[in-house]
């Protein structure tokens, strides 16, 4: 049985239409007109237990709506959802026991309570035995570096501290399925690393299934072997991260550090390579690795200029995703 099973899932919202101005507002009050917005458009996918899958798409693409249907907050307009074999909306309470959710920057902890008290309340809500709670708290406090924070009220915490606390609260009942909506947004690199490490361990130790929405492709690259891409409510890609990289990541960048400043004469480059920027003694090229190789370019540049150092950049996922949105996937 898959952990998450989604078949032809659809969510349509009725949105009241308002004409501009005060007259329009009055008209809307007495003769409301609605337009239908298809937020999630007949998508299908399934996640096996223990998978960590990235769910990506621009704002408004339908990611949050999908997650709200998977958590049981929203009911589907049509289609079929099963999480651990249950209908999450109809069996909301039973489903809630087995899932954990992080909603971006919203906190599920009590603003004024110290972290330890908040976590204890959460544990009581999920009926976790005290012994287990104490053991988990110790583990989480260690991995997420919460020791110093346990006696601190949430309202006094920094963004990164809040998110680490949030993750502890989400995983304290050892959920089998976890939905994370932007868990690393706005955080610094060190905190991001810690959070990713924590999620990896949880996944490995407990076989936790994770569906992760993010704008941070670092999250995806580090955690997910598979991605789902949604655009205007439609699922436009479901597959390995590697496949996308290979299909769209044909463009690489190459950086040169030159001796002396600037180019004296125009540079001759192999077909498929072009200069993207040039500032002082640094030169950046972009090339299509199908049409020419990195070594061809390197030797070509070195034959014309004196090179101190050079490096090859990995394909940048942001630009790949942009290409896919622009309709490059068919």
């Amino acid at each position: 049985m898959p952990a998450i099973e989604v078949l032809n899932l659809e969510k349509v919202f009725s949105i009241p239409q308002r004409d501009p101005g005060l007259a329009g507002a009055f008209k809307g009050l007495f003769q409301p007109r609605y337009t239908k917005k298809v937020a999630v458009d007949k998508i299908s996918f399934s996640l096996e237990a223990g998978e960590v899958v990235g769910y990506i798409g621009v704002n408004g693409a339908g990611k949050s709506t999908t997650i709200k249907m998977l958590t049981g907050i929203l009911s589907p307009s049509s289609g079929h959802v099963r999480v651990l074999g249950r209908d999450p909306h109809k069996e909301r309470v039973a489903n809630a026991r087995d899932i954990g959710v992080v909603f971006g920057q919203r906190t599920q902890l009590w603003w004024d309570l110290a972290l330890r008290e908040s976590l204890w309340l959460v544990a009581k809500i999920y009926e976790i035995p005290k012994v287990k709670f104490v053991a988990l708290l110790e583990e989480f406090a260690h991995v997420l570096e919460l020791e110093e924070l346990l006696s601190k009220p949430i309202r006094t915490m920094s963004l990164g501290q809040k998110m680490r606390s949030e993750l502890a609260a989400t995983l304290i009942h050892s959920p089998r399925v976890v939905y994370l909506d932007e868990p690393t947004i706005g955080l610094d690199v060190l905190v991001k690393e810690r959070i990713r490490g924590f999620l990896k361990t949880q996944n490995k130790q407990n076989g936790t299934t994770v569906l992760l929405t993010t704008h941070d492709l670092g999250d995806i690259e580090e955690l997910c072997s598979r991605v789902l891409i949604i655009d205007s409510g439609k699922l436009i890609y479901d597959g390995a991260l590697e496949t996308i990289k290979q299909r769209f990541g044909t463009h690489r960048t190459m950086k040169f550090e030159l001796a002396g400043a600037g180019l004296a004469s125009p540079l001759h480059l192999p077909d498929g390579a072009e200069i993207t920027s040039q500032e002082g003694s640094s030169l950046e090229l972009r090339f299509d690795r199908v049409r020419c190789s990195a070594s061809q370019i390197a030797s070509s540049v070195m034959s014309q200029l004196e090179v101190l150092d050079f490096s090859i950049g990995e394909p940048d996922l942001t630009s790949i995703i942009k290409q896919i949105y622009a309709g490059g996937l068919s």
Partner: peptide, 13 residues
């Protein structure tokens, strides 16, 4: 309005 109501709906109470 803030969306915090969702929090109640993902808890088993």
């Amino acid at each position: 309005r803030s969306g915090d109501f969702d929090r109640f709906l993902v808890r088993p109470i």
